[in-house]
Structure formats: C-alpha cells, structure tokens
Computed example of a mutant assay.
Amino acid sequence: MNATTTRGALLAALACVLVGGSFTANSLLGHYPYAGGQFMRYGLAFLLLVPLAGPGAATRLRTLGAARWLRLALLAAVGMVGFNLAVLAAERTAEPAVPGVFVGCAPVVVAVVVPLLAGRRPQRAVLYGALAVAVGAFAVQGWGRTDGAGIAFSVCALVGEVGFAVLAVPVLRPLGPRLLSTVVCGIAAAESAVAGVLADGTGWLPRPDAVEAGALLWQAVVVTVVGFVCWYMGMQRIGAERATLFSGLIPVAAVGTAPLVGSGSYGAAQAVGSALVFAGVAAGSGALTSGRGRRPAAGARRVPERALEKL
C-alpha cells in the first residue's frame, strides 16, 4: 500500500469505528422521538461543518445539476435519516449490535453492486475479503436477542449503509469530502424535521434529558462531523468498494462498547469474529499485497467522471 492508500484505509477505519460506537449511543435514545433526535444530530453537525466547507463552496454548489441534487437528497434520506431510524427502530426489540451484523454484510453487497453498475466484473480479492468480513461480523454478535421487527429494521439499516457509499460516488469528486458532508447534513436535518412533524406532530422535538443530550452530542460532533469527513476522505482515496470493507469494523466496535452501558458482553466468539473481520479487511483492501497491478476501485480519484456517473 502506498501512502495515499494507507491514509485512506486509516480514515475509513476510524469512521467505521466511530459509527460502531454510535450503536451503543443509540441504545440510550430508545425513548426519544426518532426524527427529532436525527434533526438535532444533523442540524448541529451542519452548523459545525459550514465553516469547514472550504473556499468556493457556493460556486461548486451552483454547478450541480438537478440530478445531482436529487441524488444528494436520496443519499440523505436513505443513507443517513433512513439508516439511523432503522437502527433506532431495530434496537427497540434487539440488542445494540444486532443491526451491526447486517450492516457488516454491506461490503459484500457493495463489492458486487458497484462494479456491475460501472460495467465491470467484481474484483476477486475484494469480494473474498468482503465475505470474510461478513462472516466475522456474524461471529462477533452471533444471533442474539431480537425478533422479526428487529431483523426487518436491521435489513433496512443494511440498505442504508450500502446507499451511503454507492449514492455518494458521483458527487464526491465535484464536492469533496467536507462540502459533501456539510450539504447532506443540512438536507438530512430538513428531511428529519418533516418526518418528525408528520409522525409525532407537535411533540416531535422534546427537550432531551442529560443522558439523551450526551448521546446526541456524541453523535453530532464525533460520529457525524468527524466520522463523515473521515469516511468520505477515505473513500476518495481508496474507492467505495475497499472503503466499505471497513464497515465490518462497525459490529466489532458496537459489541466492544456495548458492555459500557450494560447491554452486551465480549468473549471468545467476539474475539475470533473480530480477528476474521480484520483479516478480511486486510486482504480485501490490499494491505497484504503490493500496490502494483491492482485495478482502480470505483470512487477513487483516478476513475473517470463518466464512469462515476454510471453509479
């Protein structure tokens, strides 16, 4: 791995570890309105990201066509608001790491879908690594306490995780990681407000208690501002397929932090599964091979713009 690839891998890994920790934070928001909490999270993150958007942000936004704005709205709705609402809903009847198991399958889906949409065959090393990551993610959690609703919402979380990577590919290059994170957070806040009013009426945004406020602040500042920028910086450097491999770290981080709030345990099975996740990430991302001869990944800087527009 060269310096750029190594940095991209580290950024993607950090982002996914932060997201995994947010699953445990979500368990502290079980009685707070879904959409209201997402509005507070993304609204605060948007305000914090605006000064970081970089020079020429307004100019870059004006060059976006209607199709790209629609994609941004869909990215926010599916990959952000929908993903988090699905996780929160799943955790009403499931242990915090259960949706993480399904999200851990995202690398397999992305390893197949992204190349097919780009008109090429999946890369064998990435696909095998993704399968190892998915098996490891399952081993980390096993099949803990859940029910049909928990499984259904966890599947929705998987769809959201895949959308968060795939839908961002064509808009990452023209906007860059910081401006992209800023824009989608603003859109997600607006979508959450609309969903909150429709679902909960005037009670959609109650005052959070101290525990809920701490969880929301963690999600806004650490998971969203830091995590989103790191994720898109990583994806910009190593591509969507390899970056999504690191989402296998989400259930590892989730099950590792669950004992902190008394909602899970960490034992031998979790350790073995974590090792398998790390091995799959290392093999699929190219950490175990030299940088020569590897095909460019979709979403990386060297992919032509026309190829990106196919996604």
Rank of each mutant, 00 (worst) to 15 (best):
N2T: 13
A3T: 14
T5P: 06
T5A: 15
T5S: 15
T6E: 09
R7C: 08
A9H: 10
L10M: 14
L10G: 09
L11Q: 07
L11V: 10
L11S: 04
A12N: 07
L14W: 11
L18Y: 09
V19M: 12
V19L: 13
G21F: 04
G21E: 04
S22E: 12
F23Q: 02
T24E: 10
T24A: 14
T24Y: 11
T24F: 11
T24I: 09
A25S: 12
S27Y: 15
L29Q: 03
L29A: 05
G30N: 14
Y32W: 12
Y32D: 03
P33H: 05
P33E: 02
A35W: 08
A35K: 03
A35M: 12
Q38A: 15
Q38H: 14
F39S: 07
M40I: 14
R41M: 09
R41S: 07
Y42G: 03
Y42V: 05
G43I: 07
G43F: 07
L44V: 13
L44D: 10
A45E: 04
A45G: 08
A45M: 10
F46Y: 11
F46E: 05
L47P: 05
L47T: 10
L48K: 06
L49N: 03
L49R: 02
P51W: 09
L52G: 07
A53R: 11
P55R: 13
G56N: 10
A57Q: 06
A58N: 13
R62H: 11
R62L: 12
T63I: 13
L64M: 12
L64G: 06
G65M: 09
G65I: 11
A66R: 15
A67V: 15
W69M: 11
L75T: 06
A76M: 04
A76V: 05
A76Y: 02
A77W: 04
A77H: 04
V78H: 06
V78L: 12
M80T: 11
M80P: 10
M80L: 15
V81D: 01
V81S: 02
V81N: 01
G82R: 01
G82T: 04
F83T: 03
F83W: 09
F83E: 05
F83V: 08
N84D: 12
N84H: 13
A86L: 07
A86M: 12
A86N: 07
V87C: 03
V87Q: 00
L88S: 08
A90E: 01
A90D: 00
E91R: 07
E91P: 04
R92P: 06
T93A: 07
A94T: 06
A94H: 01
P96D: 04
P99D: 06
V101S: 05
V101Y: 02
F102E: 02
G104K: 01
G104T: 05
C105N: 10
A106L: 01
A106H: 00
A111V: 00
V113G: 02
V113E: 01
V114M: 02
V114R: 00
V114D: 00
P115M: 05
L116G: 07
L117W: 03
L117D: 03
A118L: 03
R120Q: 08
R121G: 01
R121H: 09
P122D: 08
R124Q: 12
A125T: 06
A125H: 11
A125E: 09
V126H: 00
V126S: 00
V126F: 00
Y128A: 15
A130R: 01
L131E: 10
L131F: 10
